[in-house]
């Protein structure tokens, strides 16, 4: 009985070895042939001279040179703010307390001590604005990417760390809910704000400025600004008088908007979204 079992299990083992052998041969051959073709034969086909090593490198994505023609441009960028881990961590570490001191001395006269502007038509409300938006605009005033005779000299008095503290302070304040009168917005304006205009390639305002942040880092909150301030900025983007929007995002969009639409949208947002569906 026991020898019979031994015999059977040794038979099984021999059978297992056979399977292992042929499976290894089949899989190995397939892989080797595929790699030969994929790493050497096909890439060599594209080369004038015979260079198998170069072919392998190219095929797995190791570039020996930056073979592409790189056109250098000396233009100043739309904004020199870069959105990196460093920028974000520095913003996270900013101090609203020290921001508060700076605001009292430097910003409060126009933007109000808590970010509620003394004249929202001229000076935007900053209460509850995002840190990223305030920081970027201050930096752009400092570098001249955003031009303003009033703001440039003021912003230049701040260090980069101070701009972050100011941004953190304003971001922590309670947002102004509504400014100005409340004419109800037309259906076409509400659609632009919430659905966009695919025919003209205009994303909805909401997709970047809405409550779930989906778009660029620096997109500001619009609710709570005065309508005339918003309209003024839209027009400046449209005429490219203001051009610190990264990758020309707002210039591209406003180019597609009619003056009536800019006006309607400014009132819609400036009204605090009273007509929001």
């Amino acid at each position: 009985m026991s020898t019979d079992q031994d015999h059977r299990s040794s038979e099984r083992r021999a059978e297992d070895r056979l399977w292992r052998f042929w499976v290894s041969i089949a899989a190995g051959t397939f892989v080797v042939v595929s790699l030969l073709v994929g790493l050497i034969v096909l890439p060599l086909r594209d080369e004038a001279r015979f260079d198998p090593w170069g072919a392998i490198c190219r095929a797995i994505g190791i570039r020996k040179d930056g073979s592409t023609v790189t056109k250098k441009s000396s233009d100043p960028p739309a904004s020199s703010v870069t959105w990196s881990a460093g920028t974000r961590l520095a913003l996270l570490g900013a101090s609203p307390e020290s921001g508060s001191t700076i605001v009292k001395e430097t910003c409060a006269a126009c933007h109000g001590e808590t970010g509620v502007s003394v004249d929202p038509q001229q000076f935007p409300n900053l209460a509850g604005q995002t840190e990223e938006a305030i920081f970027k605009q201050l930096r752009d005033f400092q570098t001249g990417a955003r031009v303003s005779d009033i703001m440039a000299p003021i912003a230049q008095t701040l260090t980069e760390a101070q701009t972050r503290d100011v941004a953190a302070y304003f971001a922590a304040q309670k947002r102004v809910e509504a400014v100005g009168s409340s004419p109800s917005a037309s259906a076409n304006i509400v659609e632009l704000a919430h659905i966009g205009a695919p025919a003209r390639g205009i994303p909805s305002c909401y997709s970047c400025h809405g409550q779930n942040r989906s778009g660029p880092e620096e997109a500001p909150v619009l609710f709570g600004q005065s309508a005339s301030y918003i309209e003024d900025q839209l027009k400046k983007f449209a005429s490219a008088e203001r051009r610190n929007d990264m990758f020309a995002r707002m210039r591209t969009i406003t180019k597609q908007l009619s003056p009536e639409e800019m006006h309607g949208l400014a009132i819609y947002y400036g009204d605090g979204g009273a007509a929001k569906p």
Binding site: F30, V31, S34, L35, V37, G38, L39, L42, P43, I56, R58, A59, I60, G61, I62
Partner: peptide
């Protein structure tokens, strides 16, 4: 982000 070599191998597989 990938070269052609392994794209080709996986196409074969």
């Amino acid at each position: 982000e990938h070269g052609t070599g392994f794209k080709f191998l996986q196409a074969m597989l």
